[in-house]
């Protein structure tokens, strides 16, 4: 049983939720991270704001933008035809989330982004896709690019009076994508994750390739591998070296009980190149 007492609120709208926010509150999405944190006394909020009835589910298209509600579960992502066609990388990520079908039913993408745990799958994938975090606070909303949203382990630019209401993505249709991660076993947290996105030479914007790594620093780390493209093909040795160079520059490498910083640094280039190889070998628009 949780040792500290608390109030429990289930706001029926995002605006109501935002109105309840204060420094002593803990926002809860699916609960897969918050409930154990409460139970272990890691978090002792005065009030819990449970978003499950706030109407923040749903995956919708608005022109070329796909909007994923903050309380969408991984299972919602897996069953969405919109995600399958426009954001296949998100689907691949959801399919590989640790913890079995139960966690797919309970864990939320918005919750994972707000929790910003270094080893979680979602943050690095949201960054890799160039996602945007839609935030609501007492003074209204703002949209934050995912690559500036995460600032460290379990730290984001989210104020104590703000909540994540949705994630927005431009369609990734036509991009080649790959996702790879290393973990000790089926039930363990990932050590390092890598999400690769590759754009063909004849696509709008020209050729591009980048990989975003999770679990290597406090926040997701994106590495531009454009210089590793030779005649439209990724030169893997160059990519491995480029990733290693960027990883070596990290000032505060992530380490925890699952793996040391040295180990993560050693495996990151390998995991990164695997994701790039998957992207290169995939048909544009297909799930990795």
């Amino acid at each position: 049983m949780i040792s500290a007492s608390f109030r429990y609120e289930t706001p029926s709208s995002a605006a109501e939720a935002a109105g309840l926010l204060n420094a002593g509150a803990q926002v809860m999405g699916g609960g897969t991270w918050v409930v154990p944190a409460l139970n272990h006394g890691v978090r002792q909020p005065k009030v819990i704001i449970d978003l499950r009835r706030a109407g923040l589910g749903g995956i919708e298209r608005d022109g070329d933008t796909v909007r994923v509600g903050a309380t969408c579960t991984y299972a919602d992502v897996l069953t969405s035809s919109l995600v399958a066609t426009e954001l296949p990388l998100l689907k691949t990520m959801a399919l590989g989330v640790t913890g079995g079908r139960q966690i797919l039913n309970q864990g939320t993408i918005g919750g994972s982004v707000a929790a910003a745990r270094p080893s979680s799958d979602a943050p690095a994938v949201v960054v890799a896709l160039g996602g945007r975090v839609v935030v609501l606070g007492p003074d209204g909303g703002r949209i934050v690019d995912a690559d500036t949203f995460f600032v460290g382990p379990e730290r984001t630019v989210l104020g104590s009076n703000e909540i994540v209401v949705a994630l927005e993505f431009s369609s990734a249709r036509g991009l080649h994508v790959g996702y790879s991660k290393l973990k000790h076993g089926a039930s363990s947290w990932p050590i390092v994750t890598a999400a690769a996105v590759l754009r063909d030479a004849d696509a709008a914007g020209g050729p591009a390739v980048a990989v975003t790594l999770g679990g290597i620093a406090g926040a997701p780390l994106s590495v531009d591998l454009g210089d590793c493209l030779v005649d439209g093909q990724v030169e893997e040795n160059r990519a491995r070296t480029a990733i290693a160079e960027q990883v070596d520059l990290i000032e505060a490498p992530w380490s925890d009980v699952i793996a040391s910083a040295e180990y993560r640094r050693a495996v990151a280039p390998v995991v990164g190149v695997r994701a790039v190889r998957m992207a290169a070998g995939s048909t544009a628009g297909d799930p990795a």
């Binding site: 429990y8 289930t10 699916g30 609960g31 897969t32 409930v35 154990p36 409460l38 139970n39 819990i48 449970d50 499950r52 299972a75 913890g99 079908r101 139960q102 966690i103 039913n105 309970q106």
Partner: peptide, 13 residues
Amino acid sequence: GEIRKSCLELAVA
């Protein structure tokens, strides 16, 4: 209608 881990749910919820 869906399987869930009941240690990750608050009873009140």
